[in-house]
Nucleic acid binder design. Structure first.
Lengths: 213, 213
DNA sequence: CTCTAAACTGATTGGTCACTCAGTCAGTTT
DNA sequence: AAACTGACTGAGTGACCAATCAGTTTAGAG
């Protein structure tokens, strides 16, 4: 019975893993089920035994992606401690860009059109995407809120600024996967730009030697 | 002869216009040539008379997109004049977000995967994409260089910062088309964030009343 | 009106695709 | 050992699609 279960799980997982790579790198409609069965060494019908149809397989892949991303950030915050909110923001940005390389398939999938189109009609898909994006946006917001408490970050709208930085980092990651620009080369400048964007302004009003321009 | 030409052009242009909408909204492989012929009221073979195959049709669409985008920015800079570099940057950002709404199809196409995948093997496609992205990146860079000359923008790496802001704005536009967040609601905060990121820091070193922390 | 070339047609073709289903088989239960 | 179960198989099906091509229409030049 143990052997049986193991066999089952390895097959299903193998299909899921291959499907993740295929959906990410080739897209939904360019991924053929028969190709998928060939590469996993499984008969055509087996995939449909484990997953009702192509769309269900995609949803299973997306669910995996969601779980992995949320888990990775959970682990990161479990291990790492930060001096202040600004340091936390820097850490999150670097970790995001790091994940975009090490979990390339996962982010590639999220940079495709299909999941968002499917989300318009499929509430399960929409749920997964919302979970991922809320998780990520919350993390950026948390860094800003922390920084505003400890004084390392200035007076900005936390949620909106979090979304702006999120879209900036995600945009960089996207440019990288499309081979348009090199994210690594921009890394230091991105951090610097964020610091300038967020840092608290020390307005020197009481200084007579420094007249305002 | 004029009538003949007009008829010809209207057919070809109608196909091109419909193809732009389809490729943008449905993607390359989900766009069927027969559907395209149906919607333009043209026989199936007619499309292949004007365009060698589906890929050539896509390239023609992309070329149009390129021309339109470059033309729009050209017109904008022909009409508008700016006080300084920072104002120019603000104008460019707002215009970019404005275009992402009014020319939604064009930007949707650029947010898809297919053109970048095709660019890996097709130099013509790669050329179009490079032209678009260089044009846009140059515009952001130009604003920064202008601002650094007139003192409205501080000492940052012009090219790299241009790419960062570009990816930020493009990320916002992308979030909008995917219905994840509302670009309009973020608009003011994006401008404010950019200003903080770019503005010249007045370090008050000579002021005894303001000790550095 | 005639001729010619360009524009256009749509039935056809060869191929791929997602999905089905009748049936095999290994292992478990009775 | 018989009955049952869940995992798996792979040939088959109908739908669709890009591209073709032999033939028709159109439009203007001579």
């Amino acid at each position: 019975m143990q052997l049986k279960l193991k066999r089952d799980m390895s097959r299903k997982k193998a299909i899921l893993r291959a499907a993740t790579a295929f959906f990410s790198q080739k897209g939904f409609s360019e991924t053929s089920m028969s190709e998928l069965s060939k590469i996993t060494g499984v008969a055509g019908g087996t995939i449909f035994y484990h997953f009702k149809n192509k769309e269900e397989l995609f949803l299973a892949v997306l669910e995996n992606v969601k779980a992995d991303i949320i888990e990775e950030f959970g682990r990161y915050f479990g291990e790492k401690k930060f001096e202040n909110g600004m340091e936390m923001m820097e850490g999150v940005i670097l970790f995001y860009l790091y994940l975009a390389v090490t979990m390339e398939d996962h982010f590639l999938l999220l940079h495709r059109h299909y999941p968002y189109k499917l989300a318009e009609t499929n509430p399960v898909c929409r749920g997964h995407l919302e979970a991922i994006y809320n998780c990520l946006a919350d993390i950026f917001e948390q860094a800003i809120l922390t920084g505003q408490k400890d004084g390392s970050i200035g007076d900005v709208n936390p949620r909106k600024t979090a979304l702006i930085i999120f879209s900036m980092i995600d945009g960089i990651a996207r440019f990288k996967t499309y081979n348009l620009y090199d994210a690594a080369a921009l890394c230091n400048d991105v951090i610097a730009a964020c610091r300038r964007m967020l840092e608290r302004r020390v307005t020197p009003p009481a200084c007579p030697a420094m007249p305002q321009t």
